[in-house]
Simulated assay, not measured.
Amino acid sequence: MNKKILIVEDDVVFCRLLTKFLSRNNYEVMDAQNGKDAFELMEMNEFKLAILDYRLPDMTGLEILEKLKSKSPGSKIILITRYGDQDIANQAIEKGADAFISKPINPNELLEVINKL
């Protein structure tokens, strides 16, 4: 897998924490705090892995998942949310998500999930 990861997370502090953590673990990380910015990054880059927050200010992570999967069908997707809703998890898996993680997230556990994909 190429090591370029897209993180879409509207919590700026949490987003920066994940970006720095994954960068220190030899991943090239780009991040966005909303769907519009994520779409712009997706137009200019190819991501083999995306970590998407479900609830964003302008759309849901499922909408970004669908766009990324249509552009790069082999991309791996991890959907995260602080709302451990089983319906959201089921929708995410049906749309092609490879993993669903509820917040709060331990960065080391996230890295384990990434390494298994």
Rank of each mutant, 00 (worst) to 15 (best):
N2T: 08
K3I: 03
K3N: 15
K4Y: 00
K4D: 13
I5S: 13
L6C: 05
L6H: 02
I7A: 07
E9Q: 11
E9G: 08
D10Q: 10
D11V: 11
V12G: 06
V12Q: 14
V13F: 10
V13A: 13
F14A: 10
C15R: 14
C15H: 06
C15Q: 14
R16K: 15
R16I: 12
L17M: 15
L18N: 12
T19C: 10
K20T: 14
K20C: 08
K20M: 08
S23K: 11
N25W: 07
N26A: 12
Y27D: 11
E28N: 15
V29T: 08
M30S: 14
M30G: 03
D31K: 07
A32E: 05
Q33W: 00
Q33T: 13
N34D: 15
N34W: 00
N34E: 13
G35H: 05
G35I: 03
G35Q: 05
K36L: 05
K36R: 12
A38R: 02
F39P: 03
E43P: 02
M44Q: 15
N45V: 01
N45M: 04
N45H: 12
E46S: 11
E46Q: 11
F47T: 02
F47W: 06
K48G: 10
L49G: 05
A50T: 08
A50Q: 08
I51Q: 08
L52P: 02
L52T: 00
D53L: 07
D53A: 11
Y54M: 06
R55G: 14
P57S: 13
D58R: 13
D58Q: 14
M59Y: 01
T60K: 05
T60R: 04
T60Q: 07
L62Y: 02
L62I: 09
E63H: 11
I64N: 02
L65V: 01
L65H: 01
E66R: 08
K67C: 07
L68K: 07
K69T: 02
S70E: 15
K71C: 02
K71G: 02
S72P: 00
S72D: 03
P73T: 09
G74Y: 02
S75W: 00
K76N: 02
I77R: 01
I78G: 03
I78R: 01
I78Y: 01
L79Q: 00
L79W: 00
L79S: 00
I80L: 14
I80F: 05
T81I: 09
T81E: 09
T81P: 10
R82L: 05
Y83N: 15
G84V: 01
D85W: 03
D85V: 06
D85S: 12
Q86V: 11
Q86T: 12
Q86I: 12
D87I: 07
Q91W: 12
A92L: 03
I93Y: 04
E94V: 10
K95V: 04
K95Y: 06
G96V: 00
A97G: 14
A99K: 09
A99L: 04
A99P: 04
F100K: 13
F100A: 10
F100M: 09
F100W: 13
I101F: 06
P104A: 13
I105Y: 02
I105R: 06
I105L: 10
I105M: 05
N106F: 04
P107A: 09
N108Q: 15
N108P: 03
E109R: 14
E109K: 15
L111V: 06
L111A: 04
E112P: 01
V113D: 03
N115D: 13
N115F: 03
K116R: 14
K116A: 11
L117N: 04
